[in-house]
């Protein structure tokens, strides 16, 4: 009896989860399929739900229109550099906030956190004029720097760093490591899952970042994928096959990164959200 009830529960649960997963993934399936069709086929009724024949022509058009290889390369470099630097800066700051007593610590930490509440539309123009004064318009510096110090990253790292045993740090000091050496050689290696979680977030953020790169970059050769895709959406004559292929290309690398790092990701989020 219990066995039977268990089986039914199991089937129901599984069916529910499958249905939910189907709803989550269906738009992706449709996007990938649409990337192999022409615009006319995409809008046809009944809809085309099987792969079409236009993948190669869409790819050729996309390459000709936005220089696909080039923008994918730009996006990748920007996202990788950004991720490394941000994760490192966040870890440093998070470590100090979690493991040191110092004057103004809580005030500064709170000051950092509260900025999350300000909508970015409000600060776009002053930020842009700061970049202009620095002479950084149309450079990758301008794309990267504003979010290098990232409130969410600092928060997540501080929460995680609280789990680092104080004895471990002291052991490092006794062994004659410099403070920075202790951080590099002892603290960081013990933080791998949290660093991986933050890395996914930051990579996602920079890879998908749209509004800011759009306003600071003027040269199409320097565009990132979202900006290049957006330039395909004009007033008329949108080639949807091409656009869907671009959208698919913009999604695949993130999927790959997430698949590789997902275990660490979950345990990293965990400590970020529970403690504190």
């Amino acid at each position: 009896m219990i066995e039977r009830k268990n089986l039914i529960a199991r089937i129901l649960l599984f069916a529910g989860l499958i249905a939910g997963a189907f709803l989550s993934l269906a738009p992706f399936y449709w996007m990938f399929i649409a990337a192999t069709h022409s615009t006319g086929e995409i809008f046809a009724l009944p809809p085309n739900l099987l792969p079409g024949k236009h993948l190669l022509s869409n790819l050729a058009n996309l390459q000709a229109e936005v220089g696909l290889a080039r923008v994918v390369f730009n996006s990748t470099i920007l996202a990788v550099v950004y991720t490394i630097v941000t994760v490192f800066l966040s870890a440093m700051a998070g470590y100090a906030f979690a493991k040191f007593q110092f004057r103004g610590r809580d005030a500064i930490f709170f000051g950092v956190l509260i900025t999350i509440m300000v909508p970015y539309q409000a600060t776009l123009i002053p930020l842009f004029s700061t970049m202009a004064k620095l002479g950084w318009i149309n450079t990758y510096k301008a794309v990267l720097t504003p979010n290098l110090a990232n409130a969410f990253g600092i928060f997540l790292m501080r929460q995680n760093m609280q789990a680092v045993p104080t004895e471990m740090i002291e052991a490092g000091r006794i062994d004659g490591c410099s403070e920075f050496g202790t951080f590099m050689r002892i603290v960081l290696p013990s933080m791998r899952p949290a660093l991986a979680a933050l890395a996914i977030y930051m990579f996602m953020f920079q890879w998908n970042n749209f509004m800011w790169p759009l306003v600071v970059l003027n040269d199409p050769k320097m565009y990132t994928i979202p900006v290049a895709l957006s330039s395909l959406i004009g007033l008329s004559r949108i080639d949807y096959g091409q656009l869907m292929l671009g959208a698919s290309v913009s999604t695949l690398p993130i999927m790959a990164v997430f698949l590789i790092l997902q275990r660490q990701f979950i345990s990293g989020i965990l400590s970020g959200s529970v403690k504190g």
Binding site: S24, F28, N208, A247, S250, T251, I254
Partner: peptide, 12 residues
């Protein structure tokens, strides 16, 4: 599968 939508680029 469930996390995928959150990582999609806005434009896509």
């Amino acid at each position: 599968a469930y996390f995928m939508p959150a990582i999609t680029a806005l434009v896509a």
